[in-house]
Design a protein around this nucleic acid. Sequence first.
DNA 1: ATAACATATCGTAATATTGCGATGTTTAAA
DNA 2: TTTAAACATCGCAATATTACGATATGTTAT
Lengths: 118, 118
Amino acid sequence: MRCLNINNKDVGVSKTNHFTDQQNRIATLAKALGHPARVAIIEYLLKVKTCICNDIVDELPLAQSTISQHLKELKNAGIIKGSIEGKTICYCLDETTFAVLKQYFKNIIISVNDQKCC
Amino acid sequence: MRCLNINNKDVGVSKTNHFTDQQNRIATLAKALGHPARVAIIEYLLKVKTCICNDIVDELPLAQSTISQHLKELKNAGIIKGSIEGKTICYCLDETTFAVLKQYFKNIIISVNDQKCC
DNA sequence: ATAACATATCGTAATATTGCGATGTTTAAA
DNA sequence: TTTAAACATCGCAATATTACGATATGTTAT
């Protein structure tokens, strides 16, 4: 059953358009990292330097389709890159994205040290 | 209507217990940052050094109850701290948490530079 | 005591996320 | 050319998230 939103209330909808591009970007990246399976995938990619593809299925307690979905989300967010490598796909981490994240938190820490409270 | 999960499939449930504490911790932090409103709240707290409370309601295009909910999530994740300050509540960023995040991404970058691919 | 302010919580409605099996699609080997 | 491996996508079911208004709660002035 589908119901109409009679009152025109923005219910259940992220008002992304009200925030800055930077804020949306960080939120998108953080969201993509906001699931332990995806964190695990990243750590796996980090471990197996040669950026192998879906042996991840054997690594994690999730179905192949689920892993594929998680990989897609990571790729959409720009956290990983994937390139076709014959029969398989070579996924690997996107350094520049992590550099953005590192810098963002670094800057926060610089500012937060000025705080005079709590 | 509520339906039973006849097939015992873990449908729609994060299997957090299959991942390491570290992975779950990072995912929890990232998830809390995974919404532009919460990123905006953090940046606001960063700007107004004196960690004022709900003037955030005037800053963001969201209802008071919604802001309160976002603050709660940030607090639960350990990203902000709050202490009662008379009539108001003094919210401020938790430095140690940001230090964790910064370090995490720093370490990733160190490893990712070894990568020989893509 | 009461009013007013600053929150938090609750109930509800809607969308988003997560997970799976089944099924496509493409490539490489047989 | 069939087969199989490696993914991706689809459809479904269930939970989670987001947002709001209404309301409750606590604090401080009046």
